[in-house]
Design a protein around this nucleic acid. Sequence first.
RNA 1: GCCCAGGUGGCGAAAUCGGUAGACGCGUUGGACUUAAAAUCCAAUUCCCGCAAGGGAGUAACGGUUCAAUUCCGUUCCUGGGUACCA
Length: 805
Amino acid sequence: MAYRPEEIEPKWQNYWEKNHTFKTPTDYTKPKYYILDMFPYPSGSGLHVGHPEGYTATDILARTKRMQGFNVLHPMGWDAFGLPAEKHALKTKTHPEASNRKNIDNFRKQLKMLGFSYDWEREINTTDPSYYRWTQWIFLQLYKKGLAYPSNAPVNWCEELKTVLANEEVQEHVDQGYTVIKRPMRQWMLKITAYAQKLLDGLNDLDWPIHLKEMQRNWIGRSEGCTAWFELDGLAEKLEIYTTRPDTMFGATFMVIAPEHPLVDKLTQPANKAEVDQYRYQAALKSDLERTELQKEKSGVFTGGYAINPLTGQKVPVWISDYVLISYGSGAIMAVPANDDRDFEFAQKFGLQVTEILDGGELPKGAIVQRIGGTIINSANAELNLNGLCVSEAIENTIVWLEKTGKGKRTVQYKLRDWLFSRQRYWGEPIPIFYSDSGEEIAIDEADLPLVLPDVKSYEPSGTGESPLATIDSWVNYTYKGIKGRLETNTMPQWAGSCWYYLRFISPDCDSRFVDAEAEKYWMNVDLYLGGAEHAVLHLIYARFWHKVLYDLGLVSTSEPFKKLFNQGMILGEDGQKMSKSLGNVVNPDDIVARFGADAFRLYEMFMGPLDRVKNWNTDNITGLSKFLRRIYSLVEDDHGKPVEFCLEDKPETLRVLHRTIRDVTIDIDRLYFNTAIAKMMECLNEFKKHDTISRSSVETLLILLSGFAPHICEELWQKLGNQDSISQCTWPVAKDEYLVEDTVLLVVQINGKLRDQLQIPKGLGQEECLNLAKASEKVQKYLEGKEPFKVILVPDKLLNLVIK
RNA sequence: GCCCAGGUGGCGAAAUCGGUAGACGCGUUGGACUUAAAAUCCAAUUCCCGCAAGGGAGUAACGGUUCAAUUCCGUUCCUGGGUACCA
């Protein structure tokens, strides 16, 4: 019988399921290896070929690590709350849970079809009340620690979706064509800013791609500088500003505050009121996008008010402009037009004073908007003289003076903002908060969780900016512990469930705690976390935040959740474009598996190129991997189904190749270089095929190496060879040194760096001997032209370079 | 703009403590098997000159260091990703 993937693949998938082959044993004596895929959102369109790329990589590693004696945790689950299911529910009037179940069944079926060795008994679903009970529980821990709080600050409101969005989500939605505006609403916030420094510091010890750490650092955006308080002409209040460049304060010739700044009304003089109001009104209408990206020209109006520059004593005008953001620092700046590009533009446009304070500094360009280098000029008063100092000295002296005089203090700022944690949606975890009729905010007791999401007739947003839950009187109007009141109608964002799912996998059935403490100590942290780079600043920073809170509460044993992180590169369509329905270039794994089998599909995805690189799909290239598998099959059984005869002993060269393959494949799998691992197994097979017969043990060894990549065919052949147990129970082979050492080596002979001859020579020869052998070569003689080399370079056992004039 | 990653045959790619560039695979060409096709097997396949032996060029471009550069340094160009008034 020829190789028939369509028969053997379902056969072995059933075998693994029936025998619980990949159930994770509860054995805390073995070394552990926790290998995690980013769990998917089960969309209606099912898997595309990008999903299995990462899943295949982790599966190879999981299967290999098991054979190497590790206790492997390799689970899968569903991040199933979220907008698409709700939108679908709106359109079809079906409960999101129903479409969800259907999608999950489809995903699970597809994943099983690909033969992944997940421990399916640990499958979790974030929408399951027994799961989100603990999501709510963790929320309450944050709440009790003061890390979850309601706020009325302006939020990002998406009109089409009728919900608010986190800062981190805005760009993505704007890119998709949604309109996002600022609107004040009562919202739940999580105080991630309290963890800004810890999140920044924690990055140092993580084995993550550098660019990804860099993205998180930029997102957190730490800057060092100082806060200063400017007195206001005729007002008791002071204007607080933040600057990283106090050295330039002598050049602060005007102030700019955000249109939303609380002091605008007090500063505005009657004569300026109309203009200010008009400007503020227009600024409120602008989306964030319009206020930032579309800025070509500065805009602003004068309030009529003045501040006093603490260093010069000068009265400087206070303007409002939307280039100053209310959400960063104190929403107010001192403008130093001589040093700051943005301030300079503003001063030019409105004819404001510019005082030079920096001599010889580099002019601002591009993203660098401020001048650096040079020495300070025109900056002295009776108490402080910065003239002649360099920037860093002047910064230091100014801060010291500000602190001494009580006019300012050293400050660290972060770009990171608190996390907007509520959504006006139905399909999310209810926030477990109750409001009594007397206006008291009461957290639901932990013992009363989960606060279950009710069934609802309509999934339409309420229209009042509240979630559909607000329309269900029987649910909202609630009596809790004898107190009448209302439940919170907002739900959590989709990110909530994925903030801690890696912990739930450790003990998915534990109902006394979110994770079993002993098991957590054993399994954490995640040894390898693999997924797409699109989660660099959202999921990965949220999850780290929750984990650090849990750690500080003594609830988990590690300060970081994911020790090593790896991003697989995207798989593009055959046309080099991102796969999308509209482009018609989507490749469906079901079709590929039907044509070539899951093993060939898995091999192809790994053979395409390095795991982290962006790659183009090319269906034609799969034939090479199909052929490889057929050749592997023919090591055990010929085309007519006749068992192959084995020899007792292999040729020495065959054994050398085999053991080199064992060594290299082991290293490559560990480095996640799956493409070269496959190439080396192909070379090994090519060597086997040179001979009429090969030994059974060599074939078995190659099958074990391959079994992580192409598990079905390897199981089948393993069985055909008469083995009883699953090949996954085997012990990983070890390369024997005796087959790795060579007694002769190929010496490359170069003349003036050009390859002229290659000599097979005994290993370990010195320069003298090599030179004599080289000189004996006709080819070398021809190029030496009788000359004596004036320089000889020998790389032992490798290369000899003769330099002649 | 800025930051990060990358640029190697017709194609996917391999080789980077500097040491034979193109492993492995696809495709193509020729051959074997076959009534024929598929499948399979064998051989060739970076480009240029040459019947061949052989020679020359070649890792985005230019320059530098070195006995030797895909690898190190500098400048430029291109592609992908991130980011964008954060004071």
